[in-house]
Simulated assay, not measured.
Amino acid sequence: MALVTILHRFADYDTFRNVYDSADGLRQAGGVTDHSVHRMADDPNNVLVLHSFDSIDAARAYMNNPKLKDAMQQAGIQGEPRIEFFE
């Protein structure tokens, strides 16, 4: 099992959340087995996303998917996300 943590900032949480919720098919096709979204208590546009996968290889493939990067842009990402992989 693998876990990916993605910490990123968005211009507007509601816009991010609409795009995130509409990307369920992308997550399923990418092998995401479980996921959750958390907002920073003092900065609601700072978002932590947790995605679980069956393997690190599946996690890396998903995170390198150009469609995911497009979705992040559409959601209004600011700067570069901090992405960590755990086994």
Rank of each mutant, 00 (worst) to 15 (best):
M1Y: 12
A2F: 08
V4T: 13
V4E: 01
T5Q: 10
T5N: 07
I6G: 01
L7V: 13
L7W: 13
H8L: 03
H8E: 10
H8N: 12
F10M: 01
F10Q: 03
F10V: 15
A11C: 03
A11F: 03
A11T: 14
D12W: 02
D12S: 05
D14G: 00
D14C: 00
T15R: 15
T15C: 03
F16N: 01
V19D: 06
V19H: 09
V19S: 04
D21I: 04
S22V: 02
S22P: 04
A23G: 01
A23F: 02
D24H: 14
G25R: 08
Q28F: 08
Q28G: 00
A29K: 14
V32A: 06
T33M: 01
D34T: 07
D34W: 11
D34C: 00
D34G: 13
H35T: 10
H35N: 11
H35Y: 13
S36G: 14
H38S: 10
H38D: 01
H38C: 04
H38I: 00
M40E: 15
M40V: 09
M40S: 13
A41W: 11
D42W: 11
D42G: 13
D42K: 11
D43N: 15
P44M: 10
P44K: 12
N45C: 02
N45P: 03
N46A: 05
V49T: 14
L50R: 12
L50Y: 13
S52L: 06
F53E: 05
D54N: 15
D54Q: 13
S55C: 05
S55I: 14
I56E: 14
D57Y: 07
R60T: 09
A61P: 04
Y62H: 15
N64E: 14
N65C: 01
P66M: 04
K67N: 10
L68S: 02
D70P: 00
D70I: 04
M72T: 08
M72F: 15
G76W: 04
I77L: 08
I77E: 03
Q78D: 07
G79I: 09
G79P: 09
P81N: 06
P81R: 07
I83T: 12
I83P: 07
F85R: 06
F86P: 02
E87D: 11
E87Y: 03
